[in-house]
Design a protein around this nucleic acid. Sequence first.
DNA 1: AAGATATTGTTCGCAGCACGAACTTTATCC
DNA 2: GGATAAAGTTCGTGCTGCGAACAATATCTT
Lengths: 402, 402
Amino acid sequence: MRKINLNSFQVASSETVRDINSRIMLNLVRKHQPVSRADLTRYSGLQRSTVSAITEKLIADRWLKEGAVGNLPRGRKPTFLHLNSERAGIVGVDVQSAVTTLAVADMSSRFLAQESIQTPQNPNDFVARLSSRILDLMRAHPKSSYEGVGISLPGRVDSASQRLIFAPSLGWTDFDLKTPLESALEVPVELENAANSCALAELWSGRHEGAGNLVAVTVSDGIGVGMVMNGQLVRGSSGVAGEFGHVTQSQDGPECRCGNIGCWEVFASNAAAVRYYAESSSVRKGEIGSKSNMASVPFGDILRLVDQGDVKATLALNKMAKHLGDGLAMLITGLAPDVLVIVGDVTRAWERVGPIVSESIKRRSLTNAVTRIIPTDPEAQPRLRGTVAMVLQKHFGAPVIA
Amino acid sequence: MRKINLNSFQVASSETVRDINSRIMLNLVRKHQPVSRADLTRYSGLQRSTVSAITEKLIADRWLKEGAVGNLPRGRKPTFLHLNSERAGIVGVDVQSAVTTLAVADMSSRFLAQESIQTPQNPNDFVARLSSRILDLMRAHPKSSYEGVGISLPGRVDSASQRLIFAPSLGWTDFDLKTPLESALEVPVELENAANSCALAELWSGRHEGAGNLVAVTVSDGIGVGMVMNGQLVRGSSGVAGEFGHVTQSQDGPECRCGNIGCWEVFASNAAAVRYYAESSSVRKGEIGSKSNMASVPFGDILRLVDQGDVKATLALNKMAKHLGDGLAMLITGLAPDVLVIVGDVTRAWERVGPIVSESIKRRSLTNAVTRIIPTDPEAQPRLRGTVAMVLQKHFGAPVIA
DNA sequence: AAGATATTGTTCGCAGCACGAACTTTATCC
DNA sequence: GGATAAAGTTCGTGCTGCGAACAATATCTT
């Protein structure tokens, strides 16, 4: 039960009822399509007449389409309804430090096209290049309308101003991406942190119907956490919730890029595995601690070496896995989510990493928590799928009431 | 924006509109009372006629009452409305290991009476004694109706079955409190973990209007965390969210009562300060580690000794404060709440403890988080106020929609 | 072959609700 | 004593879901 916020509430009118029920209807079609009006009546509990009226409106507004006619042992044949994938296009953008991926999706979250560009260093160049590529994409895939552009960012977005406050891997600080893009594209733009994007992707994937508490952990050079609680993204005050990657795990670890000592991500990120590997090499050469001399092997190479049976790489990965599990135990103990999704290249080696992580969690967690831990296939592009969810949410999410 | 849960949703009907607007109205009266219909029109944005209709219904249902007539420089005098405190009584129960406190409150959350009993060891005895005392209280304070009984428990309540799963300080496991109490009292009973109760108390206190992200930390023999995110209690899967007290803070700490090593509460609870004090005494006597020989000084005595300038007690409290801050830094970094409330006897010494806690947080937290840290006056009985909020929620909370 | 039965989907009158204009009530100001 | 102002009420309108009756379209039974 939510408290009504008297600083920003919304009274209801007659139309509110239709809005609520339309959204329920859209979600039911999304889940069960193709589906007849009669089935929708049963799923929703509304009257047949009401379902007819609502679907008529949704068809007129081109959200739904009538499709094939079904067959039943008796009685009039049902007309199936499904989402009108022609109606609306959605553009998704996944910004990462090196590469930015763009995609066009339809209403059913199917990708129609995809391309990548190098992420420009300068944020103004980025806006220029991105908007021209998006315009090209929209022209190449004509739809009756484009509902919006969702953007996943490796940084923090202020929830009030919607400005990008901080993006260490890009080197951008306090930049307004939304306004120039919206005026160039004439389409609403949604920004979200990458971990939040992954959490949204999972929430809207349909794989966890009924799971209202869901945590996504992105593991790359740093660690990000996106939280969905009670079916809703938790952004925290001014949008900075989820920085569990910078929770102190040890008083005497190496310094983190955030300036503090012993953050979780210093021990459990890809960069940590790279460091472990470099250290074990240096030790053999007697070069302990001389950071500058360490040859930095990319994390992908470490995974490859592990596959080839390399001992040092395997030990480095194992160490990273142990620490990853330690931090995940914190999330499970504290948040008790139904589902915890892991995102990142480390999932490619989950056969090895998973058991070590589970061991850490079992050792540290309080309850035999029911949390399911799910590694995401990197090919599934969780960040990008999340950007589509950002836009879909506006039409399929629960209406803002009271 | 919330995702609609297709496993349990609620369609809207015409009456839904009235339900939504009535609840907004009730909240506006609660916040601004005494308040005229004309003011409610301005606050709500509804039409004058609509406000009249809604208030008429609420008065007929005895939620509101007309009060005095106001004075204005011009025009017809407004009739003030206020909550009808006679209408409904609420019983709140704060169960702690030694003492259980009962209270009767009115709709405006004012306490009318209060009493304490020793908490019986046996849960069946507890139910018997509690229900007879509650019936006495309700008879002594007749109201047109009793809306419910809210109970704060030092343990975990399963969110689905509403059974008390685990209460270490009481020694009860998997017990159904709700059913027997409800059948004895013929009034709905709400159960909640003590930290959650404190979070609800703060949420509904009216002190933080607009703050949707709020964390309560209870510090006693253990540490509990109650989280409100997006204006709503976060219970997690099966109701076990918030066990941050059992997050591992150090690999090599003493064993926790949960069986793990180095949990936060082992370092930062009242029991920790007691242990620190005992250890420092033992050290002087050369009795390191011989637990059995340590005289256990109650935490209250340590606070008293600190007041009297005792050095060992002060050092013990300082150490506890440092570790308390370390854990709070985790919560602030990870959850970024608007408000973080501290509950427990330790707040009595906040003049001393506060700066140490702030220092720990400043050293460990990532951002200059905007979180306000607020110690609660123990006299304010946060757990008990939360029990009233549990019941109030049902009428003043946002309606369950979609 | 014709009526019985089953199922889908539509039509239509009704009741609940918010809206908004007109109206009533009750003051003070000039 | 009329103008002005504000609070609160009344009433007709439009939107919405409800539910019963009805139309459409099948198969099953006799």
